[in-house]
């Protein structure tokens, strides 16, 4: 039978649109079934907030089966939370215990501007695909699919590459906020590097060189910065004379991430996410305790 978790403290990032600076807010929540998924726990919280006349927390979700790649939360500093190989929607509350404090943030990445609260814009991934993540031939009258036999190991490798659900966790988890894993899945042929059936197995040009698509991929995410008017740029990236975001000059509260030291705000290192070594101590301690 199911058990219930009591006295959970949720520290959730609230940000009303791109023009808002955003802040963490703490919520306490009780009697959450351990059979509930993480997102169902947020549903319960949202129902409670609406009941109190407050605005619900915005977060992206859709299939809740781990296949669509829509859900996107940093949970205790980890993309999709503590369970390996598991999307947020498949994470269940049995992985947590009563009295836990859980920190929930949106994807951290320069390329993904925050739309509201925990919801980010991942259109840059679409642009990467538009730049060449497809079979380039016009397939009008397609030949019989069995005309070219594909050895099973090649087909399996293609399938491995094709399994990427495009959620953007790799970007959020990367200290540099880079989409290398995503572009790798969409652009580079897996072994053996031969023409094959997978959409990622686009044959290379005869000279053995790349057809340039990977370079086109790489140049996509940068466009996002220019595509937003200055006033809509996430505030975290706008710095005052000391190189600190406005309002962050004072001492951060002890139990909150040190936004001023977040490398996202560094003028030199425009990383998407804080490397482990630079994350606030409270977070590391919490995670070490969990491990």
């Amino acid at each position: 039978m199911s058990h219930h978790l009591e006295n959970l403290t949720l520290k959730i990032w609230r940000q009303n649109g791109q023009a808002d600076a955003g802040h963490f807010e703490s919520y306490r929540i009780d009697s959450i079934s351990d059979e509930a998924s993480f997102l169902e726990m947020l549903d319960v919280l949202n129902e409670k907030l609406i009941g109190e006349g407050l605005e619900a927390i915005s977060f992206d979700h859709d299939c809740r089966e781990g296949i669509c790649g829509t859900c996107s939360l940093m949970i205790d500093g980890q993309a999709h939370g503590p369970q390996r190989g598991t999307a947020t929607c498949q994470l269940h509350m049995r992985k947590f215990k009563s009295n836990d404090t859980i920190v929930i943030e949106p994807w951290r990445a320069t390329a993904f501007p925050i739309l509201k609260d925990l919801m980010v814009d991942r259109a840059p991934l679409d642009r990467i695909v538009e730049a060449g993540g497809f079979i380039t031939a016009a397939t009008g009258g397609a030949p019989d699919a069995n005309i070219i036999p594909i050895p099973k190991p090649v087909a399996d490798a293609a399938m491995d590459a094709a399994e990427c659900i495009g959620c953007g966790a790799c970007v959020a988890a990367c200290p540099n906020g880079a989409a290398n894993l995503f572009t790798g899945r969409k652009g580079e042929p897996p072994q053996p590097a031969a023409a094959g059936p997978g959409r990622t197995l686009e044959p290379r040009r005869g000279d053995g060189g790349d057809d340039g698509r990977v370079l086109r991929f790489v140049h996509q995410p940068r466009r996002v910065r220019g595509s937003l008017p200055e006033e809509h740029q996430p505030r975290l990236h706008r710095l005052d004379a000391q190189g600190l975001p406005p309002g962050q000059g004072e001492e951060p509260q002890a139990d909150q991430p040190d936004l001023a030291r977040d490398p996202r705000s560094s003028p030199i290192n425009r990383c998407g996410a804080a490397p482990r070594s630079m994350r606030s101590d409270w977070l590391l301690q919490r995670r070490d305790a969990a491990e």
């Binding site: 079979i135 699919a145 087909a155 059936p197 959409r199």
Partner: peptide, 10 residues
């Protein structure tokens, strides 16, 4: 298949 869907193969 022509559009790149990696169907299972024998």
């Amino acid at each position: 298949v022509a559009q790149g869907v990696p169907f299972a193969r024998e």
